[in-house]
Every structure is written in C-alpha cells, then in structure tokens.
C-alpha cells in the first residue's frame, strides 16, 4: 500500500542530497534508508564485529 513518509527540514535535506550523491547512492532516499538501517542494526547487535571477522578469516587473506 502507501509507503510511510518522513519529513526533513529543507537544509538537512539539501545536505543529505549532497552526501548521497558524493557517496554514490542513487537517491537521497536510498542513502537515508541505508544509514537508518545500520543504526537500527546496531541496536539489536545480532552480529558482532568479531563474528564478521571470524566469518571472513577462512578466506586466507586476513589474519
């Protein structure tokens, strides 16, 4: 159905737009979604950084 929308003040939106373009995001929405997803993910901390490292060590390239 309808996606919820969130309001931002104009100056923040302009900054977001610039950052999204600089960082290679296809739209400010994608950038905002990505940043928020990460922040939310940090809250539940389901995968710790240690686990990520452990996961990748089998590649051989890292120690």
């Amino acid at each position: 159905m309808f996606q919820p929308t969130i309001k931002l003040n104009r100056s923040l939106y302009e900054k977001v737009k610039q950052c999204a373009a600089a960082a290679g995001y296809s739209s400010p929405e994608e950038f905002v979604e990505h940043v928020l997803e990460r922040e939310v993910a940090k809250q539940d901390e389901s995968v710790s950084d240690e686990e990520v490292v452990k996961k990748m060590q089998g590649l051989g390239y890292i120690d």
């Binding site: 990460r38 996961k55 990748m56 390239y61």
Partner: peptide
C-alpha cells in the same frame, strides 16, 4: 574487495553476500 566496510560503523563486512533473518 574481499572486504567492504560499513560507512557508518567503519567495521568490515563481507563483500559477497548478506544474510537477512
């Protein structure tokens, strides 16, 4: 790269696949 980083946390993430619970 084999390893990307999360731009927000600057911690390593795998570049190849991502799991969603």
């Amino acid at each position: 790269d084999f390893i990307h980083r999360d731009p927000v946390t600057r911690q390593p993430i795998s570049s190849m696949a991502e799991a969603t619970p």
